[in-house]
Design a protein around this nucleic acid. Structure first.
Length: 218
DNA sequence: ATATCGATTATCT
DNA sequence: GATAATCGATATG
């Protein structure tokens, strides 16, 4: 509890995320492992009507492309995964288990496959909107983890769907979905095996902010 | 606390 | 026809 309050105070001192520029495409034009580390502590921003939904990135996974059996791009370019082979900094959203959207960003220069999956956020602003999008009461949302802890949850909280957001440029200031650096720096970064996959499950490609309460269980 | 399972559909074999 | 980068509910200790 005391930790959470301390975190809130630090957030309050930070500049308004909406005033900050999106991370540029060069940020994403790297190996997904480097992008994963770089994304921890950054802030995902959704502009929605006049409101701003924001959350700090605390858990991601790297998917390495044609050499990674767990990656959608492993078997080559298809109608679904073409974004992963295109320019960096573009959102890749897909539907899974007949229920959930999962949100990724393309990495590597144009022509090379790779991406990062967003697995958990720590809500900063727009908590009421997120609770509404998740269809949970404010009472249930008292534990904020129910909003954005898990890849399906965070996509739902931010209203991210394939129809609306796939192939969206996350580096454009015109975008309603982007990522900013508000100056926050994570403490220790921890690397673990990826969650929920069957192929290449042992590879250490999941990146979390050590000790952060919003990291998902799996 | 952990374990198991059903939901529900786009995508690929 | 099988599978899936998940979640929430239910059962059991």
């Amino acid at each position: 509890m005391a930790l959470l309050c301390g975190e809130r105070m630090r957030i309050a001192k930070n500049r308004n995320s909406s005033a900050l520029a999106p991370l540029p495409s060069e940020f994403y034009a790297r190996d997904p492992r480097a992008v994963s580390r770089g994304l921890l502590g950054k802030v995902l921003v959704r502009r929605q009507h006049r409101k701003l939904l924001t959350g700090r990135i605390v858990e991601v996974e790297a998917y390495l492309g044609v050499n990674d059996p767990a990656s959608h791009s492993f078997s080559g370019r298809t109608g679904r995964n073409f974004v992963l082979f295109g320019p960096p900094g573009i959102s890749y959203v897909y539907f899974i288990y007949g229920n959930h959207y999962l949100f990724n960003v393309s990495c590597q220069p144009d022509g090379q496959a790779g991406g990062v999956l967003f697995r958990a956020l720590e809500p900063i602003s727009g908590i009421g909107e997120m609770a509404q999008a998740r269809d949970v009461s404010m009472e249930e949302a008292a534990d904020l983890r129910i909003l954005t802890s898990g890849p399906g949850r965070l996509a739902e909280a931010f209203g991210i769907t394939r129809e609306r957001d796939n192939e969206k440029d996350l580096t454009s200031p015109k975008s309603d979905l982007f990522i900013v650096d508000d100056g926050f720096r994570p403490g220790r970064i921890q690397v673990t095996p990826r969650i929920g996959i069957t192929k290449a499950a042992e590879r250490p490609l999941r990146y979390i902010i050590a000790g952060n309460k919003f990291v998902s269980r799996g």
